[in-house]
Amino acid sequence: MDKTAILPGTLDLLILKAASLGPLHGYGILLRIEQISGGALGIEQGALYPALFRLERQNLLATEWGTSENNRRAKYYSITSAGKKRLREQTSGWNRLALAMSTALAAEPEEA
């Protein structure tokens, strides 16, 4: 699988998106990001957790200890209302940027 390294600053956005689809543990978030990006976006596994802790500290994610599908203790992350708000803002911001970028990059040389 050929994966594109994600752009700096986009990891938080992807995590929030993944968590907004339902509470997940750390590995689950990793999987969900791969899944929703069609396997195109790869995340360095070690970098995931610092990002999770950062978002938790900013109150964008809430955590709870629960049991995983194979009956082991696992920490579940779910999105908070502040997190949802941040996700909306950043999504629209990202969309604008993506549109602007693709428009700019699609420009053809004007014919004289």
Partner: peptide, 17 residues
């Protein structure tokens, strides 16, 4: 301890996967 558990769990799940 939680941090340790969380990471171990991650690696375990990855291995199972």
């Amino acid at each position: 301890q939680d941090l340790q558990d969380e990471m171990r769990e991650h690696i375990r799940q990855r291995a199972e996967h």
